[in-house]
């Protein structure tokens, strides 16, 4: 029986000690991590809208939409932290649309597309095709934005998702 108690005791002590150590470490680093994340996203926002002052967050499902306001409080645009489904799985990207509905910026934050083929979505020649389009125009693969051959699944998936996100942002712009 002694052996059994010793086993349980050792695991209990080690568990408790590790728990305490981790908790204190977390208390120290958690605020810094949160600050980092905040700064990182603010920098991204400024990348799209240089004169952004503050923003409101609105979450729909797993996606979040940030309505950005400048110093004097009028809306300058909306940035969507959204997802598309590509060839290699989900693609996380940010889409920035200014007040009158034109796409101003597109930034891919994480993707699993095949390097050398699918990752063309991160390259300018795909992104420039999308910049400047208005939410009113029909964004369909092949109609006004030809998907890049060889990577139709990746680019096609992106375009479908952009269309869906534009509709959501469109409504938000009208409400404001």
């Amino acid at each position: 029986m002694h052996e059994g108690i010793k086993m349980t005791l050792v695991l209990l002590i080690i568990g408790a000690l590790c728990g305490a150590l981790l908790a204190t470490a977390n208390d120290v680093t958690a605020p810094i991590i949160a600050a980092n994340r905040e700064a990182e996203f603010l920098a991204a926002l400024e990348g799209f809208f240089p004169d952004v002052d503050n923003f409101e967050v609105e979450g729909i499902g797993k996606e979040e939409f940030y309505s950005c306001y400048n110093a004097c409080g009028d809306l300058i645009g909306v940035v969507g932290q959204v997802q598309a489904s590509g060839y290699g799985g989900d693609i996380d990207y940010d889409l920035a649309v200014n007040a009158d509905g034109d796409i101003v910026g597109l930034r891919i934050s994480a993707h699993g597309e095949t390097p050398g083929i699918g990752d063309v979505i991160t390259k300018p020649d795909f992104q420039d095709r999308v910049i400047g389009l208005n939410y009113a125009d029909p964004i369909e693969a092949g109609v006004d934005v030809d998907a890049i051959s060889g990577a139709t699944k990746s680019t096609g998936g992106m375009l479908i998702s952009i269309r869906r996100v534009m509709d959501i942002i469109g409504e938000q712009l009208l409400e404001k």
Binding site: L21, T29, I32
Partner: peptide, 17 residues
């Protein structure tokens, strides 16, 4: 458990700094 503790600490330190 000991190893996991150190890994989590490294994870926290890396994502902070």
């Amino acid at each position: 458990m000991i190893i996991a503790t150190f890994v989590t600490i490294v994870e926290m330190v890396l994502s902070a700094f």
